[in-house]
Amino acid sequence: MKKTTTYAAGILEAYEYLLTNHPDFFIIGQGLWSPWYVGATMTDLDKKFGKDRVIDCPVSELATTGATVGASICGYRPMIVHPRVDFMLLAVDQIVTQAAKWRHMFGGNSTAPATFRAIINRGGEQGAQHSQSLHSWFAHIPGLKVVMPYTAKDARDLMISSVLSNDPVVFLDDRWLYEKEEEYTEIEILDLNEVLPQKLRNGDDITVVGISYTSLLCEKACEHLENTQGIKSDFFDLRVLNPLKLENIIQSVNKTGRLLVVDGDWSSCGIASEIIASIVERVDLLALKSSPKRITLPDSPAPTSKALEQLYYIKEEQIIETIIDLVK
């Protein structure tokens, strides 16, 4: 039987690799000495590598994020972990106004290569303030790289490349993917500057783009449609939201003439809009067979009640119906 791994195990393996091979790497964040906050992604790291490199900390998102930026300016490759994106917003000044600008405003004489990891943790009646993703906000900012892995391999390899990147990176992983299982591969050290959207399925009928958890939904929907109706999709997992590199997707849309982007966040000024706009600007309009389409969350905060949650989050069926509609 082939060796398998999971998304959570991939992140844990990235940490073990970084802590073993990079003495300038350390991690700080709330809950790092407790299995409660960060799922199976950091189990026993403090015991194995020491509490001075895996640092649990006071309830001070802003100061700990700023301290991560400060240590990165002084030669370290630190990572701050925010167990929920919602709490990371208390530290936005340090991410957006300090780290992202640091290199440019000092004319390249200094850099702040910190990694800001936050976990998207939603559903389960957690309500409006334990559910946000907000990746498009961060992707708006020049100077920040924004990474959202979908596969277990990417969760590991893109985390390593985020830490090794010479620029500040927002790395967002999704708890709904933690148990996702796939075949184990060896670690591949990637240069984050070279990472492109990854094509995971081939087809001529439509181009489908997913991001992190929505890539799981898209992949299942595309597989279902191919098996049941013979609709074949070119399916891409976006991986890096900023800087956005869309050349291979543009090529695909020129071939298929149809585009669907599925993003698990709000539509207005979101990454789905950005992808569609950037593609429409550069694609051969005569090649388009239908208007590009996006599936996003309803324009409301996340509800608590499970009846409304059912309505709120994107489902595979929605994607299937939309693809059928676009292809017909």
Binding site: G66, T68, V69, A71, I73, C74, Q94, W102, S110
Partner: peptide
Amino acid sequence: KGSVPIVGATIPIATGAGLAAKM
């Protein structure tokens, strides 16, 4: 190592520089 005009912004940054110095 740098100055910025966002009031208070370098206080945690310097604190992290202190952590780096300690390490």
